[in-house]
């Protein structure tokens, strides 16, 4: 195995490519030899970040999308021409809101689900025929670490994260015999509470994504991996 070029010959589409983690994933995947396309919503901020990324790694293709139904349809229709061999899809979108459930706006919840989860599902559906044809595919969903532990005010974000982890766990059962698998990375929703010194950085999530994307983890299927310094397992000792 070429450990220094773990994604040689691979083609990755990174959704939320202008998010902190999305950027790190795109740059790391490119460093490891993948042909990378980073996509994010049209905005001034996206444009600024994409300009920076173009300077750091000129080979990364950058797409601004509006993610409307029409746009997703275009991705689906053009999958065979624009992403002919896209065999890695990473969702690194990062739009979450907190709030107590009785006050939480349903519109915000729907948008959260749409940006972080539904778009990834629809893009995965668009790329799936190619993955099945090529007998290779990795779906990597990056979600907040709220699937197994709770915090006040996070019910909606946690529901979103739980949906992503469950989707990855289940969808992999459909297609694993085509060598198409899915896994989830859980990243700190509120950094700074970790037992390990220092909060995780986007590169830490990117390294986990790299591990999921390459053959190092080829027998790891439908898993959720917390990159959060152990905070999920930590209960503070009562003060004496």
């Amino acid at each position: 195995m070429k450990y220094a070029r773990m994604l040689e010959g691979r083609h990755a589409l990174v959704l939320g490519g202008a998010s902190r983690i999305g950027r790190a994933v795109a740059l790391l995947f490119a460093e490891h030899g993948a042909e990378v396309t980073a996509a994010d919503e049209v905005s001034g901020e996206t444009e600024r970040i994409f300009n920076e990324m173009a300077g750091a790694s000129p080979d990364i293709k950058l797409f601004t999308l509006d993610f409307t139904s029409e746009c997703i349809k275009r991705i689906r229709d053009s999958a065979l021409t624009e992403f002919p061999r896209a065999d890695i899809l990473v969702s690194a979108a990062d739009l979450y809101k907190t709030g107590e459930t009785h006050n939480f706006c349903l519109k915000d919840f729907r948008r959260m689900l749409d940006v972080n989860f539904i778009r990834a599902v629809r893009c995965f559906q668009a790329l799936l025929p190619g993955m099945l044809e090529n007998r290779r595919g990795e779906l990597i969903l990056i979600a907040p670490d709220l699937t197994d532990s709770a915090l006040p005010g996070t019910a909606a974000a946690a529901a979103c994260a739980g949906a992503m982890a469950a989707f990855a766990r289940n969808v992999t059962m459909d297609y694993i015999r085509y060598h198409v698998r899915a896994n989830t990375i859980l990243y700190p929703f509120i950094p700074g509470r970790e037992p390990l010194t220092g909060a995780p950085e986007p590169l830490d999530a990117a390294n986990a994504a790299l591990w999921y994307a390459c053959d190092l983890s080829r027998f790891v299927i439908g898993e959720s991996l917390s990159v959060n310094g152990g905070v999920s397992y930590f209960e503070e000792a009562p003060s004496s």
Partner: peptide, 15 residues
């Protein structure tokens, strides 16, 4: 690569 992963359990089991 896993410097912020601790307390985790990874199933390497083909699902």
């Amino acid at each position: 690569m896993a410097r912020h992963i601790t307390g985790a359990v990874i199933n390497v089991d083909g699902g």
